[in-house]
Design a protein around this nucleic acid. Structure first.
Lengths: 189, 189
DNA sequence: AGTCGAATTTGATCTATATCAAAAGATTTC
DNA sequence: GAAATCTTTTGATATAGATCAAATTCGACT
């Protein structure tokens, strides 16, 4: 099963040689965890990167005591506590499963070792980061200047089935509006 | 002078061998252009990446006929029409110099050739993209849920001297508020 | 199946910021 | 250096969406 998942991951980016994949596999954890499990807590040092095989997860932070969603990850996507992972700072984010999930856990050190050792793996990580960067760029554009309804419509275009997996409150905070406002937008559809 | 600039760039990320630098130099254009010059226009295909050595530039797009700033770049920073460059789509952005500037122009094809040929160069580009990604992440956080004043304070912390280089209207659109609101925030300092 | 707690909806009110308009200041141009 | 143009400020008003509060619906657990 792990082979199958890795085949799926590499098909999304670049093909990697068997040699690289074998070495990579030696340090991957496969986890099956239930909804609500916290993978990362705010303030902790984290060097973990997750790949969702089944299920979904969210990264969020607290502002004035309220949870604000920062990143959702669904099947075949990565998620990490972004500043913690890339900068080595204590995490500003929590990561929590929003459904019962099967996921892979990678370790930053091991990823870096592989990136340094294999040019192909370095390219692979660059492509993964580029994808995250472009997703963030899209979010900036619609957070900058658009109405609550435009934000919601944009999100639905990106993730048509998000409602099946993520609660209204989390969706609202992700697009920068209150849950009451989102509820009213939904009502008039 | 080109050598000096390249030394500065690589010192910000990773050291590159002389061999790589020589090959890289063979396809770099150095430009001295005046304020207001448009480097990229909306709708055009663009495979150019710029590095600001002196001066500054902005990327912006039009929404309902109004210019909305997406990215500022100051001395020793990169700028490109992000979706055009990374996805090969017609550009959604304009890029324009906000001051008389000296800049380097790189070509995507050449960058990609170097990245494929040299592992060290691949790592260098990954680091540059990671930096852009982290900048975008920070912007998302403050655009998501903060008041006009919080956004402005945050921007000033990031770029204390931005006022010397960028007009009030551009700054306002960058943080997602109107210029009248920004003017009033400034007034009560 | 019924109970309890959480999530969502609905209602009433408030407020930060947008919008529209015009004046005041800067900067560029010939 | 006066005219023209662009940028910033100030004022008056409108409004999208926040906030506060309560009712309703949903879902998990015994």
């Amino acid at each position: 099963m792990l082979d199958e998942i890795i085949a799926k991951i590499t098909s999304q980016y670049d093909t990697l040689s068997n040699e690289i994949i074998e070495e990579w596999k030696s340090d991957i954890l496969m986890l099956e965890l239930e909804k609500g499990t916290q993978l990362v807590r705010e303030g902790s040092y984290t060097n973990k990167l997750f790949y969702i095989y089944k299920g979904s997860a969210k990264a969020y932070h607290l502002k004035d005591g309220k949870a604000i969603a920062d990143w959702f990850s669904f099947e075949h996507e990565f998620i990490c506590a972004i500043t913690g992972y890339f900068l080595g700072h204590p995490s500003e984010h929590y990561i929590e499963l929003t459904e019962d999930s099967i996921l892979l856990e990678f370790n930053r050190k091991h990823i870096n070792i592989l990136s340094n050792k294999y040019h192909d793996f370095e390219r692979f990580t660059r492509n993964a980061i580029t994808k995250i960067m472009l997703q963030l760029q899209k979010r900036v554009v619609y957070l900058q200047f658009s109405t609550a309804k435009e934000r919601y419509d944009f999100l639905l275009k990106e993730y048509p089935k998000i409602e099946l997996h993520i609660s209204l409150g989390d969706i609202a905070s992700y697009i920068g509006i209150t849950q009451e406002t989102l509820s009213r937008i939904r009502a008039q559809k």
